[in-house]
Amino acid sequence: MKIFSFRKLNNSVMTLSMVMATILVLVPLGLIFFHIMKMGLSSINLDFFVQIPKPTGETGGGMANGMAGTFVLIALASLIGLPVGILGAVYLVEYGGTRISAVIRFAADVLSGIPSIITGMVAYAMLVEPMKGFSALAGSLALSLIMVPIVLRTTEEQLKMVPDTLREASLALGVPLWRTSLKVTLRSAMKGVVTGILLAIARISGETAPLLFTALGNQFWSNKLTEPIAAMPLQIFTFAISPYEDWHRLAWAGALVLVTLMFGLSLSARYLGRTKQQS
């Protein structure tokens, strides 16, 4: 009888501590979102989305150039990073011998663990130095380096889940392996692959460190990919450490927009992941 009640007590204590742990995980997220909402929402207006920052001293202005810059950087980074990541995963799963695959996999894992500021340095050495200037290209390259391992590993997992019977069906019809890999295997894994892409984009959209000495940031619109370009995280960083009250406001609003964007991307990724399980 006594042992029985001890078990019951033990059970409730453990359950309680697990509930507490869950709450501890959720609370910071809630606090961050709530605080950013509180501070940023009042500064979100049409100007914020269509204007570029006003010179110091003047009030108003927005982050239009930063948002556009972030989209340009993401688009360009995807252009470089997605083909490499996706085709790399196809190679790993459909072609790779065991040893080569293991090496690539390990390299991708190491790459995804490298501090993002280092990828910025790599892009600096590869593009900023030789081209004698900061540029959107360099920023995109830095971001794409972060993207590749994420896309590679998520795509790899998805491709592995495609049943062999499907590959065999295509091969047995006399379809070459490369066509089978792209048109049958990759295609049937597409939903999961897109989920991985969205998560990778969500990850890079908030990266600041790799952009510091590649894209550099820009107070104005940039017209060329070889020029420094504004990006939301960079603008938030610059504005937040500035002494001006009005810039702080913009930084909060920027943070809110950025967090909402990431939230949206993660939600779409989850939604896609879920519909896949049903089908």
Binding site: P163, T165, L166, E168, A169, S170, A172, L173, G174, V175, P176, R179, T180, K183, V184, R187, S188
Partner: peptide
């Protein structure tokens, strides 16, 4: 040398029509 497998394995993303001509479409 064509092959028919143990478990029916039509291409799930394709229609009946497209499955019949899959050998051509994929190529």
């Amino acid at each position: 040398v064509g092959m028919v497998f143990q478990k029916p394995n039509p291409f799930p993303a394709m229609s009946v029509y497209d499955n019949v001509i899959a050998g051509y479409k994929l190529n």
